[in-house]
Design a protein around this nucleic acid. Structure first.
Lengths: 207, 207
DNA sequence: CCCGCGCTCCCTCTTAAGATAGAGGCGAGG
DNA sequence: CCTCGCCTCTATCTTAAGAGGGAGCGCGGG
């Protein structure tokens, strides 16, 4: 018999935490040792309990999943983190995985998949749901936006004009146009509004 | 002692169903009698079990919350429905409530609030979380879009040009512009991209 | 050292978007 | 019957957006 897998849950929805806790605690080989409701708590709780697996919601208050993954791996480079989110197509997923998260899971996954993902990650084996793996392949080759372009995209998505964007970023309108043009090219869009639609679909922007 | 409150859960996430079920079944005065994973199932299960309360996720496959509320109230006009969703600012909420859903709740609500909402709704008392009530007041007075304008808005949000929109809706570009103009005015936006941002925030469009 | 890349700025030109000000048809409801 | 809201169409005008060029500067890696 293997020793228990000690699990920490981090999710801002009490309902989801309860659901995961119920599932996990029903298993003979694992148990929930602590829960957290936001990013900061997640880090604190991880440090205190040093669990075998950290199950982490990507979208959380205070500090989002990406930041938590980063910080936890600073604390313990061997940490086993399983990232969960509601949406596929979230760009942040890939950031998490490339930063060293061991697995990724959609919230609408069936019970069995969730449990086997936790078991896999607890043994430091990577786990990635097939739909995410497919997305990762799709994303391959496609050009990524620079930080500056993401800044501009954010403002474009808020409905700002080029002139307005220029003012806010302290650059000329011409430069703003240059960035927007680059965004349109990289996202393969004809207009800024279409670019926003594409960016939304790819999870490059939230809200 | 009151009789048991018989609850049916409808949500496409197994995790959320488990969480709610765990919470509900821990209470002495209520129990989960059935679950559903999509809209069609929700209707079928409601009809079969006739629960005291139907807890319903707004966003579901096959048939969304609004449609389910409509259908269930056709079957039983006295049905007690508690609508749940992840996001405040969902326009659909108001549709549900005005159609006769008894309560509305955010998924990030604490356990206690969820349970008291179920109890309230089970006695046909309306329950609306304060954040939603606030939104409802905000929305008051603000002009609503016509069906045609929503059609146009949908296409605008996909990044279509006026000409393209005109072609798809079999109207002239001038008419498309008229609709867009009306949308901009009603949403208090300067550009179409801003209109999309506002529409998104208000839950007038999804994706 | 030089190359590539990201960021910045500049120019011209065409087209799409948005502001403005009309008007007619049509259906629901007073 | 007449009004009102919605949808449709028209025309003109101004400005913002996007296409298509080119160019300099700093910085990190080969």
């Amino acid at each position: 018999m293997k020793p228990h897998i000690r699990v920490v849950l981090a999710d801002d929805h009490p309902v989801v935490r309860d659901g995961l806790a119920a599932m996990v605690n029903q298993q003979a080989d694992m148990e929930v040792v602590a829960e957290a409701g936001d990013g900061d708590e997640a880090i604190a709780v991880y440090e205190r309990h040093r669990p075998d697996v950290l199950v982490l919601d990507l979208r959380m208050p205070k500090r989002d999943g990406v930041a938590v993954v980063q910080r936890v791996l600073e604390i313990n480079p061997k940490a086993c983190i399983l990232v969960m989110t509601t949406y596929d197509g979230d760009e942040d997923i890939f950031q998490c995985l490339s930063q060293g998260a061991k697995g990724y899971l959609l919230k609408d996954a069936p019970r069995q998949e969730i449990l086997s993902a936790i078991r896999a990650v607890s043994e430091a084996r990577p786990y990635t749901s097939s739909s995410v793996a497919a997305k990762a392949l799709q994303r391959m080759g496609k050009p990524s936006l620079t930080q500056r372009e993401l800044d501009v995209l954010q403002l474009v998505a808020q409905g700002r004009s080029n002139k307005d964007i220029a003012r806010r970023l302290s650059i000329t309108e011409g430069t703003a146009k240059t960035h927007v043009k680059a965004i349109l090219t990289k996202l393969d869009a004809i207009s800024r509004t279409e670019a926003v639609a594409v960016a939304h679909k790819r999870g490059l922007i939230h809200l």
